[in-house]
Write a protein that binds this DNA or RNA. Structure first.
Length: 728
DNA sequence: CGTGGTTTACATTAG
DNA sequence: GTAAACCACG
């Protein structure tokens, strides 16, 4: 396909700073790739002179692959990757300048929480008042904003001072244990570049072009990082879409788009508004939803692809029904010639995937899940990795605590406490303390010998490691440490799954290709395991339905998309409602979701859903209500009959999902009728008392509701007259 | 004192 | 539904 005029303008623009405002599906990845290929081909620039950065591993991989295809050669050493990936690469190379140990390892959020938990306990703080997660988010927030503990103002209040104290202590621990968390990767890279003139000169000189994808998702430190790398001679191309900013919770600042125009002046702005992906119906829906957000840069997508199918809306009884419906629809699509890989199921939170998986499994539909419980974060994998970490780095207390008694080897809480206390008293790491205690007094002889044999186990494996390939070492660890036996003995299918995963880990080690021939392969593998979700594990090319969160779907496209769980409280998510701008961000997420679909979008929601172990009664997401009604048709599963959405008499009748008014804004007029009544709703009737809705039929004035009252009587009531009041 | 079974609190989104 | 916390037992 040929490029359109604004795309050509972006690709061949002169070497200066450019802001590309690119709507969903407007071919922005293509523009970035073509631009880089153009610079290499037509301007003879070396791949070394370019730096391209994105946010997700998947996007980075895709960009690299497309670029390699475009220029017809491997771009092995080119700086294309995620911010975290590139920062990591920088720190591995310049560890000395960054004040790190060569052996540093990455602390993921799980490890971070554990470390903070220990720290909170060690400081005799109440972990109900100082929740590890909250402290972690404070620390990460500071790092995102580029603030060290000494930048922070103390003396305001106890809570704040304690957080700052914990931040200080935490960074101290990280330093002592050669660990670097995700936020630190970015922050430390920034500081190292900032404070080291010759390094800065080197990189400013090297990179003639910086290309930043998803610019709207950059946070303060990432933005500062880009500014440092850009010299007056550097050309920066920032590509973004303010409507797709969905990482505010991670410190992303949409304002960076505005700041760019100022800080990198003079710039030229190019807008890409022609959408090549979706049908008119889908775009109209997306435009309508996003138009409810204030303060947009403003952008209307258009397409030449034609009207297209209506958006299907299915009101499921519960989440199982929702999953069955999706599975059914997938089979229908396949019958009509779609490939599985043309289809995607998108959801707001990872927890929703389980039920879907279940239904797909039952329907024998191949699928692939992205994200969620990451491979490298699974319990058994993490255990194995922690052994490897301890072999690599004896100072890693997180790893030490994790594996010292897994599998159980007679080292209980008391003994570990002993080691902890000794370590604190001597100001050493746990490993050294354990060594000391095997020869000192204080431990029972039983505990002593258990600790001694653990130390021997690690030392022996480390010695053998010298002559082993990575995968052989992994094999050795899971066998000799007894992980296979330990996890295998778990009851049910779980044991077998865990063994399978451990074997999978060995395969992953075997397949691992180190980037750097000089550095330790184990070190490189462990770093990769922290940075990469490991979701490339199973055959990425297999023809399978793609399951992922809305967040990880950004940048991707599919023929048919199923957007499931379109319910208030779930999407928009309840947790995001109380933060400033949270709802707007959720709406952008809805915009992202809708615009993933090329041909057909199916939206489903469940009237009843088990969430966090509790039954919830869902009402249709406001975002779906914001879609013009002539873009939607309501469908039912059994007969595959579809009806215009507004005229439906199926499913929840008007009292349950109030009738639509021609104008979207009027939707809420029906509120007093009780949005959210549904089967299972608790209601109060003036005469009969309280009860539960169990059935209904008819619509409009004819709507009848069957209520099972608490005294045991069930009655059919005409909703119009019954004056039911919803409870709870 | 350590282990294993049982109860209970807790649950977005990503690198 | 999961993993940490809890408790009774050996």
């Amino acid at each position: 396909m040929l490029l359109n005029p604004p795309q050509i303008e972006a690709v061949t623009a002169p070497s200066k700073n450019i802001l590309v405002i690119a709507g969903a599906g407007s071919g922005k990845t293509r523009v970035l790739v073509e631009r880089m290929a153009y610079l290499m081909r037509d301007h003879g620039l070396s791949p070394h002179a370019l730096l391209a950065v994105t946010f997700t591993n998947k996007a980075a991989r895709e960009m690299r692959e497309r670029l390699e295809k475009a220029v017809g050669r491997s771009l092995y050493s080119m700086w294309v990757g995620t911010f975290h990936g590139l920062a990591h690469r920088f720190l591995r190379t310049h560890w000395k300048d960054a004040g790190l140990s060569e052996q540093f390892l990455i602390l993921d959020s799980d490890d971070q929480n554990r470390m903070l938990k220990r720290l909170i306990a060690a400081n005799n703080l109440d972990d109900a008042k100082f929740k590890p997660r909250a402290v972690a988010s404070f620390i990460n927030g500071c790092k995102d904003e580029g603030q060290r503990h000494h930048h922070l103002q103390t003396g305001r209040d106890y809570y704040n001072d304690t957080l700052i104290h914990l931040y200080t202590a935490y960074d101290e621990q990280c330093r002592a244990q050669n660990l670097v968390d995700f936020g630190e990767l970015l922050f430390r890279t920034f500081e190292t570049l900032r404070d080291n003139q010759s390094l800065k000169d080197h990189y400013q000189d090297r990179f003639r072009h910086l290309l930043i994808d998803e610019f709207q998702d950059t946070n303060t430190i990432q933005y500062a990082w880009i500014r440092l790398l850009a010299s007056p001679k550097t050309a920066v191309m920032a590509v973004g879409d303010d409507d797709q900013s969905i990482y505010g919770w991670r410190g992303a600042k949409i304002e960076n788009i505005h700041r760019f125009a100022k800080d990198f002046a003079p710039i030229s702005t190019i807008r890409l508004e022609q959408n090549y992906r979706s049908t008119e119906v889908i775009l109209r829906a997306a435009n309508a939803v996003i138009s409810n957000n204030p303060d947009r840069l403003g952008k209307e997508l258009w397409t030449e692809r034609g009207t297209g199918d209506l958006i299907s809306l299915y009101a499921a009884f519960n989440e199982q029904d929702e999953a069955r419906f999706v599975a059914n629809r997938i089979n229908a699509s396949i019958d009509q010639g779609r490939r599985y890989s043309d289809l995607a199921i998108l959801y707001r939170s990872n927890a929703q995937s389980r039920v879907l998986e279940d239904a797909l499994l039952r329907a024998a539909i191949p699928y692939r899940i992205y994200g969620g419980q990451r491979f490298y974060e699974r319990l058994e994998i993490k255990n194995a990795l922690m052994y490897l970490r301890l072999i690599q780095n004896r100072f890693d207390d997180t790893a030490f605590e994790r594996v010292i008694n897994v599998p159980p080897r007679g080292i209980g809480e008391k003994t570990i406490d002993h080691i902890r206390t000794d370590a604190r008293d001597e100001g050493s790491g746990l490993w050294e303390a354990a060594n000391r205690l095997t020869t000192a007094d204080g431990l029972s002889s039983r505990a002593k010998s258990a600790v001694a044999s653990f130390i021997t186990l690690i030392e022996t494996m480390d010695q053998k490691a010298l002559d082993l390939d990575l995968f052989e070492l992994a094999r050795l660890v899971i066998d000799t440490a007894g992980l296979i036996a330990h996890h295998g003995s778990e009851k049910g299918e779980r044991g077998q799954t865990r063994i399978d995963n451990l074997n999978e880990l060995v395969s992953a080690c075997r397949a691992f290709e180190p980037e750097d021939d000089e550095a330790s392969v184990l070190l490189q593998f462990l770093s990769q395991a922290s940075l990469d979700a490991g979701d490339t594990q199973a055959d990425p090319d297999a023809d399978a339905v793609q399951l992922m969160t809305l967040h990880s779907a950004k940048g991707l496209e599919f023929q048919d998309v199923f957007l499931v769980g379109a319910e208030e409280e779930l999407f928009p998510h309840r947790m995001s409602m109380d933060s400033a701008g949270g709802l707007e961000e959720e709406r952008r997420l809805a915009y992202v979701g809708v615009t993933r679909a090329m041909s057909h979008l199916t939206v489903t929601y469940a009237e009843s859903r088990r969430l966090n172990g509790r039954e919830h009664y869902g009402i249709l997401s406001r975002f779906i209500k914001e879609i013009p009604e002539d873009c939607i048709e309501e469908v039912r599963l059994e007969s595959q009959i579809s009806r215009p959405f507004g005229a439906s008499s199926f499913g929840a009748a008007p009292a349950f999902r109030p009738q639509r008014h021609p104008r979207v804004k009027n939707w809420d007029d029906s509120v007093d009728y009780g949005i959210g009544f549904g089967i299972g709703s608790r209601v109060d009737h003036g005469l009969f008392g309280e009860g539960t809705v169990v059935d209904f039929e008819g619509s409009g004035p004819q709507l009848k509701v069957k209520v099972k009252f608490d005294d045991g009587d069930a009655k059919w009531l005409v909703a119009q007259y019954a004056k039911l009041v919803q409870l709870g």
